[in-house]
Design a protein around this nucleic acid. Structure first.
Length: 271
DNA sequence: CCGACAACCTGACGGC
DNA sequence: TGCCGTCAGGTTGTCG
């Protein structure tokens, strides 16, 4: 489930393998994921040195000394495998360093993507142009939400999933943050008080930080015999827990579908 | 602006 | 054992 915490953890897992290292080879094993791989990927990446790894929203960033940043998205099913013993049919991109370390981007559903963007124009380039603030950044707070949501009648859950409002939240952590903040997912965004939005922003940060910490603590497990680097299991508050007790008030968690996606919430304490 | 829906693609799971 | 329907983290686009 690659949401922001999973991407953050993935990037941290790639760091020891790639940071500061020269790319000996980069190989695509099919022409595309969601989009075609960049035509000049090989030419621009081969021989380049990785100068930084990072994350923006749910995208991972691999920056090189040639002024390029490789931007990857894990879609619904993507993960990186570290030093895979052998390649499987869903290992679509392979990077090998001069030291002989290998990382493979694995993505069965192929909803992910790989793009090459000029580093100095990263924020103006797709897909980052027009994106809202990072949910873990300083500017994401109650007063920002008050401004961004003014006049909006859509449900707060849908609005939090809008990357132009805040960049990097997905279905799982939106459900969990709304539970922690005791806010009903269908509440009109524009009608929430500043006090409740302050609590919401804090709740968003709290669930993300906790999930990243859980991923970090399982990082050592990433380089297991299977070499997989990607998801970690986490203690979700409400997501995927229909019928189980709400962590706030013990009432059974409910599930509702809106916009074709499941929302998990507590009808008793989320108002 | 809004909500609903479909599309992209594969695999896991439950029911029969 | 197998077949078939349903569902899943995200993004992007259309429609009314």
């Amino acid at each position: 489930m690659p949401e922001l915490p999973e991407v953050e953890t993935t990037v941290r897992g790639l760091e020891p393998v790639l940071q500061g290292k020269r790319i000996a080879s980069i190989e695509t094993r099919r022409p595309d994921l969601r989009r075609p791989f960049p035509a000049d990927l090989r030419q621009r990446m081969t021989g380049a040195r990785v100068t930084a790894l990072g994350r923006r929203a749910k995208y991972g960033l691999i920056e090189t000394d040639r002024g390029d940043t490789l931007v990857f998205h894990l879609g619904m099913s993507g993960s990186w495998r570290l030093d895979p013993a052998e390649l499987g049919k869903h290992d679509h991109l392979l990077i090998e360093t001069e030291e002989g370390r290998r990382v493979a981007l694995n993505d069965p559903r192929r909803f992910g993507s790989v793009d090459l963007v000029a580093t100095d124009r990263l924020n103006e380039a797709e897909p980052f142009r027009g994106m809202g603030p990072e949910p873990l950044g300083e500017s994401f707070e109650g007063s920002y939400l008050k401004r961004a949501l003014a006049g909006r009648t859509a449900g707060i859950k849908l609005l939090l999933l809008d990357q132009r409002i805040v960049a990097g939240l997905g279905n799982i952590y939106v459900c969990d943050a709304l539970n922690l903040a005791a806010i009903a997912p269908g509440r009109a965004g524009g009608g929430l008080s500043l006090a409740r939005l302050e609590r919401l922003a804090e709740s968003v940060k709290a669930v993300l930080i906790e999930a990243i910490a859980a991923g970090g603590s399982s990082l050592r497990d990433f380089v297991q015999p299977n070499g997989e680097l990607g998801y970690f299991s986490s203690q979700w508050r409400v997501y995927g827990r229909e019928g189980k007790p709400c962590p706030r008030c013990a009432a059974p968690i409910r599930r509702r579908t809106e916009g074709g996606r499941s929302t998990f919430y507590c009808a008793k304490c989320q108002r």
